[in-house]
Amino acid sequence: MQGYRTIHLQLQGFSDAEFQKLDSILALAEARMDYLWALSNSADADVVLVPDISLRPEGDLRPCIYYMKSGENTADHMDQGPGVWSLIVDEHQVPHLWQLTKVFNAVAESICQASETVAVDKDIEDAPSVFSEISEDVERVVEKEVEPEKTVAQIASSDTDQAANNTAPKASDPLLLDLLQPRADAGTDAVFRVCFESGDCFSADLDRDLYFSPQPIETMATCFAQCSAFEVRAVSPHTLDIEADEIEGGGQPLSHLRWYIALMSPSLDLQDQLADKTVKLKRWPDLGLPGCTPLIRLAAFMQSNEASVMTVAEKTEIPVDKVCAFLNACAQEDLVILGDQEAIHEKPVAADFKSLLSRISDRINAE
């Protein structure tokens, strides 16, 4: 974060629940922001945000951000004039972190450039007071930057209504999972630490696509399953490198962490989403993924058969909630194929499983 000023954002046309949700998302994105942002109900705010461009206050010359649904024709939004930005949201009217960060940084840069232009034209006698204010603010920022670790967001367990805009089956993602998605523009704030109320922590480096944890990630299963509240803390890359040297095995692929969070997170809503669909795996998931080994039998059936979620549960004798959780995790790896017609092999699952174990045994003995 490089700016010393706070940019105030007025929300118009949003409910209290939407206000609170956006406030949580904004706090989560703060680590990647170039400037501080704060929500406001005041008409004196720097920027106004509306859920639709038609709700932009008439005659309001302030910069305006408006929601644009994913998939809308962008050509319809080309002539909105200067000082207007569109922010793509999913079907639940929720912006993704990388998109929100990109747009808000662009708006902030525009505002601050305009402010600098105005400042140049001010009388020189105003300079002492202006620089005094800047100096005080810069001192506060410097104090924040030298802190070894700063909490940049506190996320409650209720802030978990994120949904992906993919064709693959996917349960509503907790904000934690969205936070860990790869982004091309993660920038200098790509390194951070996530700490749960239980005291469990892990660190993530989006640039290197790695996560670091002194304990096996499986020890945090309860945190993921309960969508526990957590804090996001800024960590310098240098600090993380020092800590990584003391972690046995070093960093692990971030995709493994995303898989495990999806596997442990509530996902029964997939049962309703896929009520009239069949599912099948494109290929086996990596057996090295955390929590995958106990699901070998389920993976064997779904790789060889195409069936509904209920049929998969019935044939494998695995509870529906575990089938949905496995599907949710496999969707993170882009392994799921949707269909509309079942194709079940007559060979019992037990036989498939025994055949699999036999092939694995043969391969081990051959080596």
Results as ranks from 00 to 15, higher is better:
Tyr35Cys: 05
Gly71Lys: 09
Ser42Asn: 03
Asp44Gly: 09
Leu61Asn: 01
Leu28Ser: 15
Leu36Trp: 04
Val50Arg: 04
Ala43Ile: 11
Asp34Ser: 11
Asp23Val: 03
Ala29Lys: 10
Ser24Ile: 01
Ser40Cys: 10
Pro57Lys: 01
Val47Glu: 02
Asp34Lys: 09
Cys64Gly: 07
Trp37Gln: 02
Glu30Ser: 14
Met33Trp: 08
Val48Met: 05
Asp46Trp: 04
Leu28Arg: 13
Lys69Phe: 07
Leu28Gly: 12
Tyr67Asp: 11
Trp37Pro: 09
Asp52Phe: 00
Arg56Phe: 05
Arg62Ser: 08
Gly71Cys: 09
Leu61Arg: 00
Arg32Val: 02
Val48Asn: 04
Leu49Glu: 08
Met68Asn: 07
Tyr35Arg: 14
Asp60Ser: 06
Ile65Tyr: 07
Leu55Lys: 09
Asp52Asn: 06
Asp46Arg: 03
Met33Ala: 15
Leu49Asn: 11
Pro57Asp: 06
Ala27Asp: 15
Leu28Val: 15
Asp23Ala: 12
Cys64Asp: 09
Ile53Cys: 02
Asp34Trp: 13
Asp34Arg: 13
Val48Lys: 02
Leu49Gly: 11
Val48Asp: 07
Lys21Asn: 05
Leu39Ser: 12
Ser24Gln: 13
Asp44Trp: 08
Ala38Gln: 13
Leu61Lys: 00
Asp46Leu: 03
Asp34Val: 03
Ala29Leu: 05
Arg62Pro: 07
Ser54His: 02
Leu39Arg: 09
Leu39Cys: 13
Asp44Gln: 08
Ala45Gln: 10
Leu36Tyr: 07
Ser70Glu: 13
Arg32Phe: 01
Ser24Lys: 05
Ala43Thr: 13
Asp44Ala: 12
Asn41Cys: 01
Leu28Trp: 12
Ile53Gly: 02
Arg56Cys: 03
Cys64Pro: 01
Leu61Trp: 00
Pro57Gly: 05
Cys64Trp: 02
Ile25Gly: 09
Arg32Thr: 07
Asn41Glu: 13
Glu30Gly: 07
Ser70Cys: 04
Leu49Ala: 10
Tyr66Ala: 14
Tyr67Gly: 05
Asn41Gln: 12
Asp52Thr: 03
Leu22Asp: 10
Asp46Phe: 02
Trp37Ile: 00
Ala43Val: 13
Asn41Asp: 13
Leu39Glu: 12
Val47Ser: 04
Ala29Cys: 14
Asp44Asn: 08
Gly71Gln: 05
Ala31Ser: 08
Gly59Val: 03
Leu55Trp: 05
Asp52Cys: 01
Pro57Phe: 03
Gly59Pro: 10
Ala27Ser: 15
Val50Glu: 10
Leu55Asn: 07
Lys21Ile: 12
Met68Gln: 15
Ala38Asn: 04
Ala31Lys: 07
Pro63Thr: 08
Asp52Ile: 00
Arg56Asn: 03
Lys69Arg: 15
Asp52Ala: 08
Ala31His: 10
Ala45Leu: 02
Arg56Pro: 03
Met33Ser: 15
Leu49Phe: 10
Arg32His: 10
Lys69His: 11
Ile25Lys: 10
Arg56Ala: 08
Leu22Arg: 10
Ala29Val: 06
Met33Val: 09
Leu61Met: 04
Tyr66Lys: 09
Glu58Tyr: 01
Ala27Leu: 06
Leu49Asp: 13
Leu39Gly: 14
Ser40Pro: 14
Gly71Thr: 03
Leu26Thr: 07
Ile25Met: 11
Gly59Met: 08
Ile65Pro: 12
Arg56Trp: 04
Ser54Pro: 00
Val50Phe: 08
Ser24Glu: 08
Ser54Leu: 02
Val47Asp: 04
Pro51Gly: 01
